[in-house]
Design a protein around this nucleic acid. Structure first.
Lengths: 183, 183
DNA sequence: AAAGACATGTAAAACGTTACATGATTGC
DNA sequence: GCAATCATGTAACGTTTTACATGTCTTT
């Protein structure tokens, strides 16, 4: 059985719902899960090729495509579904943060308070922008929660909203503590 | 100028305070910043070698070491300090989550509610354990906040506490929503 | 006519982890 | 005496990103 490269799982998870091209998969990743998982063409296409070899996905004919532009729709197989299922049922998960902002703050002793405050403010700006978008998604999903799949999308988005709001609360407190300390 | 490999910055930041061996650096990383940044010997030693070549750090004699066991203390140079400073002053930072738990939840439509609930519970357990430790660190640091450097350590720890508490709040809500949906 | 999105794929480079290899010292 | 920790380093492996290469279709 193939090693469980995480990108494989992302692709299988997406293909579980519908047949997609590599290009579609990239778009889905960017639009739906990019705030907690990323993926690039350079990993998507090789993953598809490898999984096809291993029988987890198959190429399908795209009846709707009448143009000359080549377009390869992938479909998940029963074995692919089994593989996805196995991964889902295994409750161990690797969760990791890589927060360069925190790294810079941790080493704040090597610079001025103003630099650290500026770093926190840059972080606040990024988060504020993303939070707005997440809230927009959340309110849209709230209207369609009766459909089973949407519940899962809603939960990941609400994870984002809750944590980003926590980030912003922390940012305010952190700046205050730094500026008070300076006095 | 060397590319800014992040592990280089971690090491320079640590060396800013005190001279350390590669082994010490690994311990510092594990003890202080591992919840938002990781590092292994396989990246630390090569980084030290490269930075020595580039004049960012130098090897120093360890006067205190009278044993036969080899021990190489590294010291940051002026150029190393400049390089660290530059990085700190550049407010753009790459912050990324890779949350396999969220990935599994996002694809929850491909399995049963119970599996998703179990995944959230495994996440809760991990977070609860880490949160306890973070709170312990936080209360210790609170007592020594008068020293400038400690403020920065305190802020990163308090980031951890705030976000981990948000994770736990979310976990409870998420489980409830899933279990209610099943009815 | 041009720009931008659609579409596939490869190659090189960067980066990091794990496992291996070796040996000294400390504490029980 | 033995286990754990201290201490350095390399090699193999795996993953992922970035840049490159190529060409089509749609919209303005």
């Amino acid at each position: 059985m193939a090693k469980d490269r995480k990108i494989d799982m992302v692709i299988l998870g997406l293909l579980f719902h519908e047949n997609l091209t590599g290009y579609d998969i990239k778009k889905r990743i960017d639009q739906s899960i990019s705030f907690f998982w990323k993926g690039s063409f350079g990993s998507i296409y090789p993953s598809l090729a490898a999984m096809e070899k291993n029988g987890l996905v198959i190429k399908t004919k795209d009846e709707s495509n009448t143009t000359k532009r080549e377009k390869i729709l992938y479909e998940i197989t029963d074995e692919g579904r089994r593989f996805l299922q196995e991964w889902l049922e295994d409750s161990k998960a690797e969760n990791s943060l890589r927060y360069e902002t925190l790294l810079k703050l941790f080493f704040g002793g090597a610079t001025t308070i103003n630099v650290s405050v500026a770093n926190i403010e840059a972080f606040e700006n990024d988060i504020t922008k993303d939070l707005e978008f997440l809230k927009f998604c959340k309110s849209n999903l709230e209207k369609v929660l009766d459909e089973r799949d949407h519940v899962f999308f809603y939960l990941t988005v609400s994870f984002g909203v809750e944590t980003y709001e926590a980030y912003l609360r922390w940012s305010k407190e952190a700046k205050q503590l730094l500026l008070n300390f300076e006095k």
